[in-house]
Every structure is written in structure tokens, then in C-alpha cells.
Amino acid sequence: MMRRRHKIRAAVIVKGVFIAVFTFIFLLPLWLMLTSSFEESLSFARHGYSLVIYSFSTAAYEILFTDSLFWSSFGNSVWVTLCTVALSLVVNVLSAYALSKKEMPLHKFFNFLFVFSMFFNAGMIPTYLIIRSLGMVDTFLALIIPPALGVYNILLIRNYVYSLPRAMDEAAMMDGANWFQLLWSVIIPVSKPVIVTTAFITLISKWNSWMDILLYISKTEEGHAFWTVQYYLRYLREAVGATNSAVGSDQVLSASIVVTVLPVCILFPFLQKNFSSGISLGAVKG
């Protein structure tokens, strides 16, 4: 009996240590961004990135907030992300509903078209060439339209609609509703959880994207007007890595990281709730 109690207590301690260590690992990088962005610059030069703030200063934020490039990038990020999410909702929900109708002629073929694109894509250069020949290079269209289609999201919604009882829309069909009315008044109201989940997936991945600027926006002065805040981060990060970096540029980088991660943290309670339920809804059913 004694031995068993010891055993259990040991297990609890091991578990507690594990949780503590991993919490520390998960939060450490974020914490370093906070401390370094609020550190006074001379003190930062002496101590470097550290766990504590030696002397408090908001200078890094003042530099960041007076940079007009930061504000234009941040503004671009906000509206580009919102546009992409809105467009993707329309595209994804419509496609998913159509793909969920197994009795539709060519149902299998269309499903294959969508699923196959997840496993085989032409790659960076052919995609770039198409976007260039569509005249989308150096426009916001290149940042908004291609990511509006989310095949994974479509499959999540489709699987959810599959799982709904068929009687639901058949009853409405009897009343003479057309497909659009059906989708709008029957399917969308009951599929809200999974639709919201996919909207969040698009939101986060668009907010965090920067490769599209790297590829589709030219690296000239005019290109700055298209920057999103993530690309602004990259620009600061490259400046920090350079040998002749300006004094305090690393702290401005930390401050800008704090400011970009903040909106995500505000959304976080919703994210956690939605992702855990939404993903297990769609993913387990495969």
C-alpha cells in the first residue's frame, strides 16, 4: 500500500515537472520578446535578451509607432486578411455544399479534382508564371485571390455536411426550395461551428503569410505599398542580421513581434474553443 502511494506521488511529480518544463519552453520565446522590447537600450546592449527587465523603457515602441511603413503594412494586413476571409467563406461554403451532394452527376470527378490538388501541385515557379501572366504581380489581387480557395477547409465543411441527416434538406426540397435557398436557410445555420472554424483557419494563415509578398511583389520602393506586417517583420529581421545594423533595431523587431502576435492572442480563446471542436469534427472522420 505504501509502495503504491509512493508510486502515484512519483508519477504526479514527474507529470508536474513535465508540465512546468514544457510551459516554460512554450512561453520562453514570447517572454523574451516582451522583456527585450521594454528594456532600456543601453541596458539591453549590456545584458542582451534576458528573462527580466533591468530598466523599463518604451523607446522601442515609440520608434515602431512613428514608422509610417509599419502602419501601412499593418493596415494592409488587416484589410487583405478580412477580404481573403470573406471571399474564402463564399468560395469554400459553395464548393463544399456542391461537393457534398453524392447524387450530383460527376460528383466523383469534381471531388477528385479538388482532393488531387492537395497532393500534387506544380510548384513555385509555374504558379508564379501563371500569376504573372494574369497580370496579378504587384497588385493586391495576388495576395487576396489565390489563398481564398482552401481545399482542406472545403473538405472539412463537406465532411460535416455529409454527416447531417439527409431528411433535412429533402424536406425543404419538397417545399420547392432551390439549392441556394436550401444552403442558405437549412445547411449554413446548422453548419456554423465548422464554418467558423474554417474562417479562423483562413484568418490565421493569411495573417501569418509573407511568402506571397516575397514572390509576387517586386522589391523596389513601389513594392513597399503592398507590404503586410509579416513582411515588415522580415524586413526588420534582415536588418538585424546584417553586420551594420542600426542600434536598437533588434528591440524594434521585438516590439513589432509583440504587436503582430497580440491580435492573435486576443482571438485566442475563440481559436482554442473552435479549433479543438472543429478539427476533431472534421479530421477524425477523415
Binding site: 512554450f26 512561453l27 520565446p29 514570447l30 523574451l32 520578446m33 527585450s36 535578451y49 490565421i204 495573417w207 501569418n208 503569410s209 509573407w210 509579416q230 513582411y231 517583420l233 522580415r234 526588420l236 529581421r237 538585424v240 542580421g241 533588434d250 523587431l253 521585438s254 513581434i257 503582430t260 502576435v261 492573435v264 492572442c265 485566442f268 481559436l271 482554442q272 479549433f275
Partner: peptide, 18 residues
């Protein structure tokens, strides 16, 4: 979950801190 929602560019700044 938090790190999953942080962009690679931000992670790059954090990696630099380490």
C-alpha cells in the same frame, strides 16, 4: 497551441533572441 498561431517571421525573431 499558441506557437502554432505565430508566423515563421515572428519565430525567426524569437530564434534570434536565443
Amino acid at each position: 497551441f499558441i506557437p502554432y498561431f505565430i508566423s515563421w517571421t515572428a519565430v525567426s525573431g524569437m530564434a534570434f533572441a536565443l
